[in-house]
Design a protein around this nucleic acid. Sequence first.
DNA 1: CCGATTTCAGGATCACTGATATCT
DNA 2: CAGATATCAGTGGTCCTGAAATCG
Lengths: 133, 133
Amino acid sequence: MTAAYADRLVSEGLAGAGARKWHYAVLAALAEAGPGSQAELSRRTGIYRSDLVAVITELADLGQVERAPDDADRRRNVVTLTSAGRRQLHRLDRLIAGVQESLLAPLSAAERDDLASLLRRLLEYHAGPDHPA
Amino acid sequence: MTAAYADRLVSEGLAGAGARKWHYAVLAALAEAGPGSQAELSRRTGIYRSDLVAVITELADLGQVERAPDDADRRRNVVTLTSAGRRQLHRLDRLIAGVQESLLAPLSAAERDDLASLLRRLLEYHAGPDHPA
DNA sequence: CCGATTTCAGGATCACTGATATCT
DNA sequence: CAGATATCAGTGGTCCTGAAATCG
């Protein structure tokens, strides 16, 4: 229930900036790990390849990313962050930080660290190679 | 991301028992707080009144709840848990407990308590009367 | 031939809006 | 009349499957 509430807060915030969760995820993944193919972005972000197509198309229409064929492997498209995409990402980063602050308001700094640490451990445990399901 | 993973585990588990999240939520709410109108169930579970109609219809078709008009307030339907519903709830409870165990596997008992406590505090803070949004 | 990539066409669940008819 | 309730219709985002076409 807490997660659902957090998700709603984030979605509302992003909607105010004309974006959605996946838009933010893609922009952030590109900024963190550099340009990549769509299959790679799918793995980084958890977005299904099927849905990623539409997301990239939307971001490209907004001028926030560029999609170009990869000369080295002609099956691939290389998706690159544009300067407009970088600006949008900075906007969304500030926005998300505000949402996070209001979500975590009742917790102290130490408690926030504890929470993040616990959640991170769960994620790493289940993302590990020994845990297919 | 942790929440999304947990959600998927739960959904897969419930699907194996022929149920969905909302089915479980409604059965659990009825068991905890007794029979109620659909509007009341909507408030308890967070399900939209619109969607609740279909969920109740499905549970009624499965014989797990009964929907009867309320004589005291003829706008309302009173939804009641049947014995079949109670049995199904017990099945799902055990199933969810198993899922929870595998999700929280890397955490000690004390850490699980910490996590639950932190999440509960966030929820209570935001569910409070001073927090409309 | 096998495997990876992109794309499209869909299904199922979920989140939410709006309208309507009924009743208090 | 205002307000609550149950219902229906419909939109859109998310999660996921399957299949086609292209390329390594």
